[in-house]
Design a protein around this nucleic acid. Structure first.
Lengths: 135, 135
DNA sequence: ATTACTGTAATAAAATATATTACAAACTTA
DNA sequence: TAAGTTTGTAATATATTTTATTACAGTAAT
């Protein structure tokens, strides 16, 4: 199962970018995705840690972007919400007496590192503004 | 959680490529990964379906490559074991009354399709032979 | 016949993701 | 200041997916 963190975070930011002057509530945002508001608040906590958004507590509280959408890239979001993209690992420790078992994870790591660089390069070129301009 | 199918399949094929003339048993292969032999047999069933390996039943049975390792690419394995790489989706249906909710999955799909092309291009250039040459 | 495999189904266990509940703390406005 | 609304966060429960295990019929070598 792959977590929806990236997609959820991107969805949140897209909504925020559409109303840059308003503080949107987690409940409102959750309604657009049909998920639980607590999940939204968790991702917002993460966004705040990275200074992408700012929140206001209390009545009429909510969250808004802390910087212009053109200065936020999908790579920023990727790095915040994903460890690394992989094609998976065999989850048990392989047999260290087997030359393949002993070394395959290193080779997989090298491969996956490459793949992540490619993805980062691609995402780096897409700003939140341009992503959300379609909506 | 991401499934280990790609990594397991690649591990299997790497072992087979090291002993192209022998029929290796699922138990032997499983021992190198420290996983259950039934999982190995399942991935081998998949490989057989794609004519990458051939098996022999009965005593001294097992599996070997059905074609030279240089003719198998990591992309072949990728396509056999992965649907598509994604950075995730929000798993519930989004609110169709929200312009963002209504359209975001299409945009994510476009993005993920791009990412998969990149990954395919990269994997296409790596043969099983060259991958396993390090071991 | 006996032994050692494959092939496959059915079930159980473990891991992870998501949902829900609960409530203190913060803040607004009347 | 009291009432109402929202964030922030922890704790727990449910759902989903992955991996492991068990079981056994079928196949082939000796």
């Amino acid at each position: 199962m792959i977590s929806g963190k990236f997609a959820i975070t991107l969805h949140i930011l897209t909504l925020l970018s559409k109303s840059p002057d308003d503080f949107l509530s987690s409940e409102y945002i959750a309604g657009s995705m049909n998920i639980n508001p607590v999940l939204v608040r968790k991702e917002i906590a993460n966004l705040k840690k990275h200074n992408i958004v700012e929140s206001r507590e209390g009545k009429f509280g909510g969250t808004r972007l802390a910087k212009p959408a053109v200065e936020i890239t999908l790579e920023d979001i990727f790095k915040m919400t994903f460890e690394t993209v992989t094609l998976g690992y065999c989850k048990n420790d392989p047999n260290p007496n087997c030359p393949v078992g002993k070394n395959i994870n290193e080779s997989l790591n090298a491969l996956y590192t490459d793949i992540n660089s490619q993805i980062s390069d691609k995402l780096k070129g897409i700003s939140l503004l341009s992503f959300s301009s379609g909506f």
